[in-house]
């Protein structure tokens, strides 16, 4: 039975993988820096490792979905990320996709419960 547990764990990871982008685009409506974002995501139940999240933020920035600024007000300068208008549009599209997906899966799994 340990095998089934392990399979669920690894498949769940596959399921979550794509949701990190959506969660980032949603959270970064307000500017946030890397580590704080990581904590917020993990507290919210979207588990992600730093070595995945930080490169991901840069990729989203390169794609024009995020923009960043160095904030030097505090003793430790930090890079704050924020969604661009383009990022907001992509997020709206992803949210629609997500809701469709939830509906479809809910319908498909109804009989099997």
């Amino acid at each position: 039975m340990a095998d089934a547990e392990e399979l669920i764990l690894s498949q769940a990871q596959e399921l979550r993988r794509g949701t990190v982008v959506l969660a980032c685009l949603a959270l970064l409506e307000a500017p946030q820096y890397g580590y704080a974002l990581l904590v917020t995501l993990n507290d919210a139940g979207v588990t992600v490792d730093g070595n995945t999240l930080y490169p991901l933020l840069r990729r989203l920035e390169k794609q024009g979905l995020l923009t960043s600024d160095w904030n030097t007000d505090e003793s430790r300068p930090r890079k704050f990320y924020r969604v661009t208008p383009e990022g907001s549009r992509v997020r709206a599209g992803l949210v629609r996709e997500w809701e469709d997906l939830v509906d479809s899966i809910a319908r498909l799994t109804k009989e099997n419960r």
Binding site: Y33, G34, Y35, A36, V39, G50, Y54, R58, W70, R76, P77, R78, K79
Partner: peptide
Amino acid sequence: ADVADELRTTIADTADA
């Protein structure tokens, strides 16, 4: 330079926490 700066602060933030 930019990745280095960000990585350094991120590591420090995480270690502090």
